[in-house]
Design a protein around this nucleic acid. Structure first.
Lengths: 230, 230
DNA sequence: GCAAAAGTGTTGTACTTACACCCATGG
DNA sequence: CCATGGGTGTAAGTACAACACTTTTGC
């Protein structure tokens, strides 16, 4: 009778779809692929895959992320579940979307070729299959809120970063220009960054100092009741 | 081959769980029930139910809401999907949580008796089954953000409301006291409420004026690029 | 020596906070 | 007439927005 209660109900395919964000050449990009199966074969699509018996939702998403990036411990957050009846032309599928922040420079191109994957500027997205455009929109809104209130944007960088690069990143996420002095003032007031001796001389002759995010200082900062804000 | 791609994958039970918020006696409450089936029978639980073939996620949630409240057109928002492997002791179930804002005074008690349902103060929740406590926490955080940036709190009222009641509502949602004059100043500046002639004389001898939310004015307000904030 | 990006402070404005007294009425 | 909750304004402090010039260095 116990089993009956559970088993007399309908079951569904569940997919995890990943909005993989990367920051490259001063642009916020999403990793897209050409859908490998019918229907909509060869149309632009997010990275996705079905969830299996033995895994949690989070594990299913991590599986997809690893398949397409070969990276582990990627920062990831759930966007939500998408369950309209006809959302997937191939059958009844409930998708749970996750966004992930990856270091686009760590990304290797042979992998990209294998999966027919491309980094595409968020502002210039093509029409994607099913409701994937809505997923990206929702993910971007969530990301905007998140980076403004928590220090997660640093996951886009390989530990160190320059202030001009950080500002460019925030500008592309917010899709608006920011005032250089005001931006730096806020960072200065929070006092969460460590300035390195080293400079990045790629983007300018003068060179910009590298910084790192100080996690211990951030924990104290939270304990003191302060709030991250950018 | 097309069908094979879809059908060779695992399928799952999907449940919709509803965090039904209501405002009653100046307290923010959640409608809870005694779980009617094993396992965990008779433990406190959110209102939930399985999703069926012919319905969308939203429709599944609306079905649950209607079953327990007999109301339609309830304001509802998705909180997220919960997919840990052992989250439900009765079997593998993926739950999608929704919160809903209902007018607790419209609620009839015979219905409550039928389903063994009770309104319980959010600050005094008992231990709920599975991960339902986490769902309520997540829903409450979302609700706090939502009512601070969008005029959704008005759904708790049956169209008209007094300013003292509105303030009490915000105080219980935020779980902090607010300054009466500052609260009213913000409302005044946004100019989105219409003052009625009528007074509520139940809560005081002098009586407090009723107000209604003016939706047309709010649309203009948005068109002018303004943002709701409380 | 000049082009190109990095770095640096001040001032006015808008918003947020803190705060205390009178009013209306039912009992 | 008094107890109870409803209603009102101002001043100080804080956060935000706007703004322009000097520095460094590779070419």
């Amino acid at each position: 009778m116990l089993q009956a209660y559970y088993d007399n109900n309908d079951k569904f395919l569940i997919a995890a779809d990943c909005i993989i964000f990367g920051f490259h050449n001063n642009e916020l990009k999403v990793l897209l692929t050409r859908r490998p199966v019918e229907p909509m074969k060869n149309e632009w699509s997010l990275m996705g895959g079905f969830m299996e018996e033995g895994e949690s939702l989070v594990q299913a998403a991590e599986k997809i992320l690893f398949r397409y990036t070969q990276q582990k411990n990627i920062y990831m957050e759930q966007v939500g579940a998408y369950g309209e009846i006809d959302r997937d032309a191939g059958g009844r599928v409930i998708s749970v979307a996750f966004y992930a922040l990856v270091q686009a420079d760590k990304f290797n191109t042979s992998l990209a070729n294998k999966f027919d994957a491309k980094w595409i500027n968020v502002k210039k997205l093509p029409k994607l299959v099913f409701d994937h455009n809505k997923m990206v929109d929702d993910a971007l809104k969530l990301l905007q809120y998140k980076v403004s209130t928590q220090p997660v944007a640093f996951h886009f960088f390989n530990d160190k970063f320059t202030l001009p690069a950080l500002q460019e990143l925030y500008e592309t996420i917010y899709q608006m220009p920011l005032d250089k002095r005001n931006f730096r003032k806020k960072l200065n007031n929070m006092d969460l960054l460590d300035k390195l001796e080293e400079k990045d001389k790629v983007n300018s002759k003068r060179g910009a100092f590298y910084y790192t995010f100080n996690m211990e200082r951030y924990k104290q900062f939270l304990d003191e009741g302060k709030r991250f804000s950018l």
